[in-house]
Each structure stands twice: as structure tokens, then as C-alpha cells.
């Protein structure tokens, strides 16, 4: 690590000021789980860190009007342990989905510190949060000197470690639609070891009509691609089919044909990552059917 100044603003205004003052030399720090790795390896060397941990407004969760506002500094642990969403509609299917995804990220010690907003801003392809937030069609509130704007998930995630955030801006809230009705979600990933990030991942959201036919859906692929990618072709194919009778194998074949993996790691190549997609979409579909 190189020397830096460590600031602990208490409010959002103050935090924004601190970040905006010397934006190119400043990094906000939420849980630090990604940032500190980059600082220790000297990949990055900001001259000042602005801690968001003390900014209460950034750690709040609230619900109502068909949406849930998740503060970016809400930790994985608070979500996995059911604390974060305790106050709001407890039976919400979308919170159940996010809880399932988050409880299985990395390991317990990382989850204690890691935050949803940190993972979103870090925007690494292997991370689960960008994929999950895309499939739930989250909106991202970005606060800057000139006010707050709202960005849709597909605009927020721009590429490997690239988001719509401009220097000096902060992610101030993640807005997750909490649609009434029969939306169901599923997520599946494959890494090398139990605690490894995904080589490939698939998230799926479906809404079914009274006859359990798919009315509307989103399928999002992660891991193998630079940013969460919608599989529009598969989505179209799925519409109108009875959810209980979808041939997972066919869907899998289509997904593997539609998605072009962009990333191969030091070890696992693109073809292998692509070959995982059928199994993953089947598992995601099963979860959506079973867990709702």
C-alpha cells in the first residue's frame, strides 16, 4: 500500500464533498473487500480514502410503493442473516431471492465486511451481485455534485470493472422493484472451489399468468461475459410456455448458442464457460419453480 489519508464523513453531503474535492485521487471505501486487495498489490494507489461506513443514509433499507431501497453499504451478512430486510415486507419474493444469492457468496468472513454497493461499483464479471441486480431490474441512484440521477442496471454495468459512475460520484441507493404477483427468481453459478467466484453464472426471472404460463422473463448471464448479459432470444422463446413444462435441455442449448463468452481465465477457457450454461440455466429454472 502507498500512503493515504483516511476520512470518515458522517453524512452524505460531507461524503460527496470529500469525494468530489480531488476525485482522481480519491476512492470511497465501503467494506474494503475488493479495494484493499487492489491497494495491497499496489494496483491502485489513491491518496485518500473516504469511508462510507459512518454515513447512515447509505446503510438504510426501506420499502414501499412496490420497491425496496437498499443502501449501498448494507453488508452481505446483514442480508444473509435476515436483518437487513427484517423491517420490510418479509414475504417478498425478491428479498428471498437476493438473500439466497448473497448467503452463498465467498465465505462468512468476507460477507461480514462486503457490501452490496461495493460489489456493484467494483463490477467484476465473476461477481454475483451485478447479475442478480440486473435480473431483478434494479435501478441505481447516483449522487454527485449536481444532484442525483437514476440509472438502470443495463446502463450501470458497462464492462469489466466499469460502471456508469463518474469520478466524484457515489452510488447512493439501489432500488429493487418488488413487484406484487407471481414473479419467481432463480440463480446458479459454477466456480472451481466452494468459495470461488463464478466462471459462469445464470440468473432468471419469470412472471407467470393464471395458467402458469410465462408472461414475461429475464435471463441474465454472468462470469463469462464482460458485464451481465441478457439473453433476449431465450427470453422470447420462453414466453408463453407453461413454466412447469419448459424443457430445460432445449433452453440450455439455446442459451449456449446465444451467449458468446467473452472471457476466459488463466485456466478455464471460453468454451468451457459456455458449456456450463445449460446446467446452470436448468438449475436456475428449478430454483425459480421450487422457491418462487
Amino acid at each position: 500500500m502507498r500512503p493515504f489519508e483516511y476520512l470518515t464523513p458522517a453524512g452524505l453531503e460531507e461524503a460527496l464533498e470529500a469525494v468530489a474535492e480531488r476525485p482522481e485521487e480519491t476512492a470511497p471505501i465501503a467494506g474494503g473487500q475488493s479495494l484493499l486487495l487492489e491497494l495491497k498489490s499496489r494496483e491502485r494507489a489513491p491518496a485518500r480514502l473516504v469511508s462510507l461506513a459512518g454515513v447512515e443514509a447509505l446503510g438504510a433499507v426501506s420499502g414501499g410503493h412496490g420497491e425496496i431501497r437498499v443502501g449501498p453499504t448494507v453488508t452481505y451478512r446483514a442480508i444473509a442473516d435476515g436483518e437487513a430486510f427484517a423491517a420490510i415486507a418479509s414475504r417478498s419474493a425478491v428479498t428471498g431471492f437476493l438473500t439466497r444469492v448473497i448467503a452463498n457468496i465467498a465465505d462468512r468472513a468476507v460477507r461480514t465486511m462486503a457490501t452490496v454497493g461495493g460489489a456493484a461499483c467494483q463490477a467484476e464479471p465473476a461477481f454475483d451481485i451485478p447479475v442478480a441486480l440486473t435480473v431483478v431490474d434494479a435501478g441505481f441512484e447516483v449522487a454527485g455534485a449536481s444532484g442525483t440521477r437514476r440509472v438502470a442496471a443495463h446502463e450501470f454495468f458497462r464492462g469489466v470493472k466499469q460502471t456508469a459512475l463518474e469520478q466524484g460520484e457515489l452510488l447512493s441507493a439501489i432500488v429493487v422493484p418488488d413487484p406484487a404477483g407471481s414473479w419467481r427468481w432463480g440463480f446458479a453459478k459454477q466456480g472451481m472451489r466452494a468459495h470461488d467466484a463464478a466462471l459462469s453464472s445464470v440468473a432468471l426471472a419469470v412472471r407467470v399468468d393464471g395458467e402458469s404460463r410465462v408472461e414475461c422473463c429475464r435471463i441474465v448471464v454472468g462470469g463469462a461475459v464482460k458485464r451481465p448479459s441478457r439473453a433476449y432470444g431465450c427470453e422470447t422463446w420462453l414466453i408463453g410456455r407453461p413454466i412447469g413444462e419448459v424443457e430445460a435441455e432445449k433452453l440450455g442449448e439455446r442459451l449456449a448458442a446465444e451467449v458468446v463468452p467473452e472471457l476466459g481465465g488463466a485456466r478455464f477457457g471460453r468454451e468451457y464457460r459456455r458449456s456450463l450454461l445449460p446446467a446452470l440455466v436448468r438449475r436456475a429454472l428449478e430454483e425459480a419453480r421450487d422457491e418462487g
Binding site: M192, R193, A194, H195, D196, G265, A266, R267
Partner: peptide
Amino acid sequence: RWGEDGAVANAGFKEYFAPSAAD
């Protein structure tokens, strides 16, 4: 693993796959 340039491609536990109890 060494790349063709002789550089270690996985000099850390992130990509050096030491198994955990769960593996």
C-alpha cells in the same frame, strides 16, 4: 502454471486452487 513467457499465471490462492474442507 507458467505462461509461454515464463510468468506465473496464478501466484495466489485466488487461482491456485488449494482445496478447502468443503472441497
